[in-house]
Design a protein around this nucleic acid. Structure first.
Lengths: 105, 105
DNA sequence: GTTACCTGCAACTTGATGGTTGCAGACTCT
DNA sequence: AGAGTCTGCAACCATCAAGTTGCAGGTAAC
């Protein structure tokens, strides 16, 4: 159970560049330098984004020799999705209850 | 089908104050002024947040006399959750494939 | 018609964030 | 040992976002 603080996870997912990084990592684990070769931003910018992603558990570092590769943690994505879905369902339930009252049932 | 641009939705959900507003709206529809009475921020700040939430379809305005009440759109939350879940599942699938290759199966 | 209240617009402050460049340190490999 | 390359740290810039205050415009109610 990761149980990250939800809101920071969304904040991390609310940036296009970070999604580009996640998408690139989907092709296989890669280091900040390798990613900088594929994306139109500097290595340091990518390093910062990776730090943010790691902070909320969306990505994890793996040392391979002298480089640090990053891997997407798909389960964190799924966990976040499920928590969000539960919240959405809760709201739907409440709305349905209100609707019933409004319709005099 | 709302089909909002995903990333902006996450950006909208990546703010604590916005969650406070959503939570308060969960108690029942309310206007910006009413929310300002319950939350520790100014009405205008809340109005801006509501604009952001409306922009991505998480909330919708309802005129009631001279005031504008807002209602949470739970379905948008659920839709976002399902899309995120699909992405997470896709990553898990890929990781599983990579793992199989790595284990020489 | 006034009074009162609620919304909407504008200007401004401030802190966070996305981005850059430059440099120092560490590790590999020949 | 030396060359090359990868990481990490720091300073810095610019833009955006969250928040504020103040004011003008409607709309409801008495």
């Amino acid at each position: 159970m990761t149980m990250q603080a939800l809101v920071p996870v969304f904040a991390a997912l609310g940036d296009e560049t970070r999604w580009s990084i996640l998408a690139a990592l989907g092709e296989g684990d890669a280091s900040a330098s390798a990613l900088a070769g594929r994306l139109p931003v500097s290595r340091q910018a990518i390093a910062k984004h990776l730090a943010v992603l790691q902070e909320v558990g969306l990505v994890e570092p793996v040392r391979v020799g002298r480089e640090v590769r990053y891997r997407v943690v798909g389960s964190e994505l799924s966990a976040t999705a499920h928590r969000l879905d539960a919240i959405g369902a809760e709201w739907d339930r409440r709305l349905a209850a209100i609707k019933e009252i409004a319709e005099g049932l």
